[in-house]
Simulated assay, not measured.
Amino acid sequence: MDDDTLSRAFAALADPTRRDLVSRLTLGDATVGELAAPYEMSLQAVSKHIAVLESAALVTRRRDAQRRPVHLDAEVLGELTDWIDRHRRAVDERLDRLDELLQTTGTTDDEEHPS
């Protein structure tokens, strides 16, 4: 995933309504009308949110007879998760090395901050 796509995806997910739409799409494809039902906003407003998710490659729309269901692209979510996990592992490794260093020098949290 290139930096532009990554930035668009995270920017799209920064909005709580769009995060909720993504969560709802994990249950399966849905039309704009079905996605809009629980919200007190117009179909046009929900369509704009979907367009942002679409430009971030998080969802696609396809024609199914008279319907145009919105489909969540799980592969893109997987790529976002991989990016987050890679950085989480790097931080965990750095903290593990710090713990090892503190253990070898005899400095522990208990010694610095007695109860």
Rank of each mutant, 00 (worst) to 15 (best):
S55L: 05
D20A: 09
T81V: 08
T60H: 15
H71L: 14
D4L: 12
T31M: 03
A74N: 13
R88D: 11
R97V: 09
E112T: 08
L72V: 00
G33E: 09
A37I: 02
P16G: 09
T26P: 04
D99T: 14
R67K: 11
R88L: 14
D109S: 08
L43K: 09
E112F: 06
L80D: 09
L80C: 07
D29C: 00
A45T: 15
T60V: 05
A57S: 15
Q66F: 09
M1I: 12
V59L: 00
S55F: 04
A90W: 00
A14P: 00
T31I: 02
L58Y: 06
M1R: 06
D109G: 02
H87V: 04
V70E: 02
A65I: 00
V91S: 12
R86N: 12
S55A: 11
D4Y: 05
L98F: 11
D15V: 12
E79T: 09
T17Q: 10
P38H: 13
D109F: 14
A9K: 01
A45G: 01
W83P: 01
S23L: 15
A30W: 00
R18A: 06
D4E: 14
D82G: 05
E100K: 07
D92K: 04
L35Q: 02
M1W: 04
A65N: 11
L77Q: 05
H113I: 13
E34P: 00
D15K: 12
I84H: 10
Q66G: 05
R63L: 03
D109N: 10
K48F: 10
A37Y: 02
T104F: 07
D3A: 11
L21R: 02
T31Y: 02
F10V: 06
L21K: 07
R97N: 05
R86T: 15
Y39H: 15
S47H: 05
H87W: 03
R62V: 11
D2G: 15
A56W: 00
D96H: 07
D109I: 10
A37G: 07
A37K: 12
T60C: 05
D85Q: 12
D85R: 10
G33H: 06
D20L: 12
A65V: 05
R94A: 15
L6F: 08
V22G: 04
Q44K: 10
T26I: 09
E79C: 06
L80S: 07
G106V: 14
V70H: 03
D64R: 11
T105V: 13
T105C: 06
T26D: 02
L102M: 13
D2C: 08
L43Y: 12
E40P: 01
H49N: 13
S115N: 01
H113Y: 15
R63D: 01
D109T: 09
T31F: 01
I84A: 14
T17W: 04
S115R: 12
L21I: 14
T105I: 08
L77M: 13
Y39Q: 06
R89A: 11
E75Y: 04
E111Q: 14
Q103T: 08
A11W: 12
L35C: 08
T81N: 13
V46K: 02
